[in-house]
Nucleic acid binder design. Structure first.
Lengths: 192, 192
DNA sequence: CCAAGTGATGGCACTGTGTGTCATAAGGAG
DNA sequence: CTCCTTATGACACACAGTGCCATCACTTGG
């Protein structure tokens, strides 16, 4: 299976992250990334469909992982609980391998283009959750709404967890988010 | 058509929507849009920062409108209620002038690039809500979470309203969404 | 009535993204 | 050693987006 120089994709990802960190996403061309990786511009686009994707490689695994986690929850469990359990489990596993994900986060946060793409990635997770809920028997409309809400909770919990820097577990962050939302909805939301 | 005809921006928006509807977003170049509007490619970019924005012109008014609506709610009202009231009011006004917004929705739905940009527009609304809540005294973390949740509710309610095709009011759609969420959170969410 | 000023536009050149096509080099299978 | 597969290089091209300057229309002051 050995090629010219193995690990071309890894070299491209590494070179991209380094250059983005140093000069900013907008000031780095695909040509420069490819050159640092010992490849040509044309080859870059054989590994990644566009310049943004080099920072999101592997993210296509998240939606199916979440979907199967949702489907793995016991059938009787209420939709929202099923999704929250699934996201807690997936998120915890995800939280374990965040090596160097710190600089990556910073690069994304600094670029409007990358933040835009990141939202698309989360939207894919939302769609996967919705489909999984429908397959569990939830009606499509409720499934879509709960999927969006759960994704919001997931994102928020993850950001919370990142900021707390390992002092709290991811599950605790999810619980805190859910508690806040439950409180907001039960207290007097729309009690006109 | 003389060089100085007024309404250049309107002509560009109209030409773009027509061409996108007919040939699809990806198969239409900026040059063709500009030509149909009686302008040159260069002038298109004087009115819109990029090709996607021609379909989102005016959307920059939404975040400040939502923000002021949130700030206009009586100070004692709970954060979530304040945001929901504000969004109901703004959404109702928004729902009144949806002339031809139908084809626009279809064009956006058909293009991944446009859907991606649309999410950015909603993210701007979320940010505006968050900031407004913070100015109302809500702590920043809760404000961010509720802003995201409220935006989800807003989007979902709007889609519901669009599908119902005028048979229900926008306010009713928001109420239905809130009822669903409250039910999901109160029933037994995370009652481990 | 004319000259200067102002603002929108056209024209042009240029960088950068993304893609199609073909040639080539490297490795493995027979 | 030859054939075949596959990653890669090389080249051409369309299109997005931008900077710069000329030009044209309309306005204002003299």
């Amino acid at each position: 299976m050995a090629r010219w120089d193995p690990g071309a994709e890894e070299r491209l990802k590494k070179a991209a992250l380094e250059l983005f960190t140093e000069h900013g996403y907008d000031n780095v061309t695909v040509t420069r990334i490819a050159e640092r990786a010992g490849l040509t511009r044309r080859s870059f686009f054989r590994y990644f469909p566009d310049k943004r994707e080099v920072l999101f490689a592997g993210s296509e695994q998240l939606p199916p992982a979440v979907a199967s986690a949702v489907l793995a929850v016991a059938p009787g469990v209420a939709p929202l609980d099923a999704v929250l359990d699934a996201l807690t489990s997936v998120g915890t596993r995800l939280a374990e391998r965040v090596d160097g994900g710190r600089t990556r986060r910073a690069v994304i946060a600094a670029s409007a283009e990358l933040r835009e793409r990141e939202r698309t990635k989360f939207a894919a997770v939302t769609a996967a959750i919705r489909d999984a809920l429908v397959r569990r028997g939830t009606d499509p409309d409720t499934a879509a709404l709960l999927a969006r809400t759960a994704t919001v909770a997931f994102r928020h919990a993850f950001e919370r967890w990142t900021e707390s820097d390992g002092r709290t577990s991811f599950a605790e962050c999810v619980d805190a988010v859910v508690a806040t939302l439950r409180d907001a909805f039960t207290t007097r939301a729309r009690a006109d």
